[in-house]
Every structure is written in structure tokens, then in C-alpha cells.
Design a binder for these strands. Structure first.
Lengths: 131, 131
DNA sequence: AGATGTATGTTATAACATAACACTTTCAGT
DNA sequence: ACTGAAAGTGTTATGTTATAACATACATCT
């Protein structure tokens, strides 16, 4: 059995999982104050661990965190499609994308360790509403 | 001739161009204090304009800015290979990458507006030195 | 029990970014 | 050249995101 999560880690993960939208560290802190959280390091330490376990992802372009939408992403390369209208995020895992990233890294002579790909735009329903 | 840049914009762009490594807004501010810059908004406003003109890029994963390496990046879609050892950055523009991004966006039902792709790792010389 | 490794609570501060206001410069249209 | 709109600047203050540092607690192994 894999290592179980601590109370704080579980609370943070559950909050992200049940929200389905990306949350910032400080909005997590707000939501978890009723559970005794008081200061940013409590949140950031839980996030750090969850990231290392591949259970969540950080969206660098919006300084926010989302639960992984797949079972276990620890070593996968994912792309994210982020709707700027409703904040909904889709996580895309795709062999072509992964090989594309490796190929770009190779072009640059880089041994890749970690990558982020984030696409911003409007989802179909938000695009319809703007007109 | 395209619109010319203001003094502040030129100073910021020249600093980025002559450095060839990514700089944060605050390190730009430090370097430009001798030219009369005194407060963050002066830097951020210049950066904002240069971004809009496609003359620089923001690397979201390290909160830093680099000059565009493709003299006039009308391309909105670029990938960046970032060496965590020496901070050197390569900007990659590649038709396959671009179509890959469009395809990922389409999978997610997103009309893409802007995308970021940043790959972290070690360049060949840094990888050799670690051993 | 003692040693080790990890997690936690807490205070303080560092690092990144923008709001708001007053003033100046630029430049197209009359 | 005048003028009004748009863009740029200087400045102060503040908001937002993230980590350093230190003390304490708790679990696990020998």
C-alpha cells in the first residue's frame, strides 16, 4: 500500500478534488481556516507533498493548483486547457504531446525533467455567450 | 517603420536583449536604477507593452522575462527550453508544436488564445558537470 | 528509551504584481 | 498652431504569492 496522506494533506487534496476548478494557495487557506489552518506554510507544505506524489498539478500561468484528473500522474507529461471565461480546466494526456515535448527538448539539447503546457482560451459555452 | 519605443521601453528591452538570460521584473529594476527607474510600475508597464508587441516573452514558471529570439515574434505560440543549471533559455518555434497545441485545444473544446509551454531540465553542458 | 525522519504550528519577511492619482508627452484633426 | 484624446511617466501605497526560520510534536525503527 502506498503511503497514506496526513490530515493536512488530505484536507487540501479533498478541497481541490471537490472544487474541480483551480484554486490559489490563499483561497485554499481561506476555505480551510475552519479546519484549523492558520498560515500559508501549512498550505504550501501540503501542496508541495501532493505535487511530488503527482496527485495535483500547479498551473503556473495562474498561480493555482488543481487535482489531477487521472489516476496517478507522477511521471506523466500533461497539458492543460484553461477557459478564461469560467475557469474550467481540462487536463490532457496524450502520447503525441509527450513525444512532441521530448522532441522540442531534444532540439534544444536539453534533458527534460519537468514541463508545463497551458493553453488559455474560451470553452465552447463561454465562446457562445460572448458572441 | 513600425512604432518606435519610448525611452523606458527601450531600456528594458535592451537590458533583456543584452543579457540573454531571463530576468525578473525586480532584477530589471535593480539594473535600471542607475538610469532613473525607481519603482516597480515603471518596469511592469514597459514589460506589458513589450509583451503586447511580441518583443519579449514571459516565462510563467519562473516569473521572468526574456527577449524574443526570433526578431519579431508574430508567432504567439512558442516553446521554451529552460536549463535549471545555468538559466539559459532556448525559444523553439516549430510548426509541429503549433499544430500539436491546436490539437490539444480542440480535444478540450477550447478556442485557443494564448499558450505557454516551458520545459525545464539540464542543458548538455550542465548535465555533464553534474555527473 | 533513544535516534531519526517527517510533519506541524507560528511569526516574520521575501518576492512578485497592481491600484490609484497627479502630471507630462505625443500626435492626429481642425 | 491649438486643442483634445490617448498614451506614457513618476510616485506612493497596497495587494498577492511564496518561503525562511525556529520550536514542537509525532511516528517508526533498533
Amino acid at each position: 500500500m502506498s503511503k497514506s496522506l496526513t490530515k493536512n494533506q488530505t484536507l487540501v487534496l479533498d478541497t481541490l478534488t471537490s472544487t474541480s476548478k483551480p484554486l490559489t494557495a490563499y483561497s485554499l487557506l481561506d476555505r480551510l481556516k475552519e479546519h484549523g489552518f492558520k498560515a500559508p506554510p501549512q498550505i504550501y507544505r501540503a501542496l508541495e507533498k501532493l505535487l511530488a506524489l503527482g496527485l495535483i498539478h500547479k498551473l503556473e500561468s495562474i498561480n493555482s493548483f488543481v487535482a489531477c484528473q487521472h489516476s496517478d500522474c507522477a511521471h506523466q507529461i500533461a497539458g492543460f486547457a484553461i477557459c478564461d471565461g469560467c475557469d474550467q480546466v481540462s487536463e490532457i494526456i496524450d502520447d503525441d504531446l509527450e513525444s512532441q515535448i521530448r522532441s522540442v527538448a531534444k532540439t534544444a539539447g536539453l534533458v527534460p525533467k519537468k514541463s508545463t503546457m497551458e493553453i488559455h482560451g474560451l470553452c465552447s459555452s463561454c465562446a457562445d455567450n460572448v458572441v
